[in-house]
Nucleic acid binder design. Structure first.
Lengths: 194, 194
DNA sequence: TCAGTCATATGACCCAGATCATATCTGAAT
DNA sequence: ATTCAGATATGATCTGGGTCATATGACTGA
């Protein structure tokens, strides 16, 4: 609903790719052909340093766009490897640039999408910077991050699922959260209204 | 040099603000007037949750843009408070939107800037997700993050400076880094050429 | 229906990194 | 010159969260 920005592009602009583990979508220094969106599975972006070791730049999962910056550069700056098979959309760079130049609203929407991503990554960084597991979990729940599974939630905020479960239970015991079902937790309203 | 994108805007579009601690630049729900750039000092973006506690969304320091998304929305979604006094540029939303609609290159440059920011935040998130202090420090040095002080570097990668210094020393002892000066460290080339 | 897989949940143990303390060096301000 | 603040650096101690183990519930597919 919010970001089927690219589904407005002509059908020819989007190519569906079924991926298997270890498939390579593009490699560093290859000319850019477009950006991608993960529908199912996981794509890991990696770069090899001058010294030779591998840096993971990003792991894109369901719903995530990646290689957005490729639209504005000539070469990919990293490798894209499928670490979990699934489906990936390839969105044509040419079609995107064409539409960006001709459709003001599309351009503004794309900018807004990128700006919102910047926002949300900054926020996630702040959350992961919270040292205490309890406070981090509370902040993340407050932010509405616990929408699917606890395990997924835990990895998102850089905690083990064990530490996460423990923090959730403690927060419940403290009365700061309530468990509303298996794997479901909610904020407790502070009764500070007059 | 790279992002004086906004210095091309007419002089009237940029307003210089001298800030003191606890100054408020904008508040949640106020109508948006523009984005900002920190020149000196620190600006913290905060939001109050339904339950009443405060979430820190971002802490912008020297060189950082913030509130980019305000250009595409009607109201600020958080408070901006100066936690360290200094200087801040206010960049007019109207002037920005005007230029975006009239200057294709400006629009593309702004999108590219946002896309690069998304990239770098994703990468920083991956780095902070590395559990071992040594590996995290090595990755961050490889990425060129140790450009100013070690203390600044340490906070960026979510480590205490003590843990950071220890990791740097161990990496030097292991021969994976060399110290080239007080607070200066470099990667060691792996001699694996034929 | 039953095995197999994955999420949920919690307890025990241990270690890596936070915390605290200390010392030196550097640069800026007075 | 001298003080002071802050960065650099390292050592000692302690604790919170990682790791490992275990158990159960929920769903899936044979």
């Amino acid at each position: 609903m919010t970001d089927d920005l690219f589904s407005n592009l002509p059908d020819t602009a989007i190519r569906l790719i079924s991926t298997s583990t270890d498939d390579v979508l593009f490699r560093q220094a290859e000319p850019t052909t477009g950006l991608y969106r993960v529908q199912r599975g996981c794509v890991t972006l990696r770069r090899t340093t001058v010294v030779g070791d591998t840096l993971t730049l990003h792991r894109a999962t369901s719903g995530d766009l990646f290689a957005e910056a490729s639209v504005f550069s000539d070469q990919y700056h990293c490798d894209a490897i499928c670490t979990v098979g699934g489906d990936v959309q390839h969105i044509s760079k040419m079609a995107t640039l064409d539409r960006l130049s001709k459709d003001q609203n599309f351009a503004l929407a794309f900018m807004a999408l990128l700006a919102r991503q910047v926002q949300s990554y900054r926020f996630l960084l702040e959350i992961t910077a919270i040292k205490s597991a309890e406070e981090r979990v509370l902040a993340a729940v407050s932010a509405g991050y616990l929408d699917s599974s606890v395990t997924e939630f835990a990895t998102r905020i850089h905690l083990t699922h064990e530490a996460c479960y423990r923090a959730l239970r403690t927060l419940c015991n403290q009365g700061r959260l309530t468990q509303v079902g298996r794997g479901q937790y909610q904020l407790v309203d502070q009764p500070d209204r007059p």
